Simulated scan of single mutants.
Amino acid sequence: MNEYLITFLGIYFLCLFKFIAGPLLGYAAGFGLWEIVAVTVSGMMTSVVLFSFLGEWFKKNWTLITRKKAKKFSKKNRSIVRIWHKFGIWGIAFLTPVILTPIGGTVVLTSFGIGKKKILITMLISSLFWAILFGLSIEKLLEIPFLKKMWT
């Protein structure tokens, strides 16, 4: 039981920062589908909750600490704004687990002025969708020769 709990918490901690760690490491640890979904979604949603409530404070204090003039129109910023204009909150939430990190997606939505409740709901739906999809297909994904070579 202790080994299981340590493994679960370790994967949970990694999911705070990188969503894909949940399905990959959960599969490697021998977790079932619902264990993979639980650890992945709980890790991502912990980050989303923390950064949606601390996002404004973090944004304000981070700019005071860095004081570096960041490029306003970088390639990355243009891509995010393009996605925002095309798909809105659902586009950012949908891409957060796959391309952005849970922290990055939450900070982006917070910076666009989206309410906390809306962020939590859209990110929860997105994380459930991707966790179930990855959980169901992780075995097949790891059969791709490139990924199989990296995994073994």
Results as ranks from 00 to 15, higher is better:
N2Q: 11
N2T: 12
N2L: 12
E3G: 04
Y4G: 05
L5K: 13
L5I: 15
L5F: 13
I6K: 13
I6W: 09
I6P: 06
I6T: 04
F8G: 10
F8T: 06
L14I: 07
L14R: 07
L14P: 01
F17Y: 13
K18V: 12
A21G: 06
G22V: 01
G22R: 01
P23H: 13
L24G: 04
L24M: 14
L24N: 02
L25R: 00
L25N: 00
L25D: 02
G26I: 02
G26E: 09
Y27R: 07
G30I: 05
G30C: 02
W34R: 09
W34D: 04
E35I: 03
I36K: 08
V37F: 10
V39I: 14
V39Q: 03
T40Q: 12
V41K: 11
S42A: 15
G43F: 12
M44C: 15
S47D: 01
V48D: 10
V48A: 15
V48N: 15
V49K: 09
S52K: 05
F53L: 12
G55Y: 01
E56W: 00
W57K: 08
W57L: 11
F58E: 08
F58K: 06
K60Q: 08
K60A: 11
N61Q: 12
T63D: 03
T63S: 07
L64T: 11
L64M: 05
I65P: 03
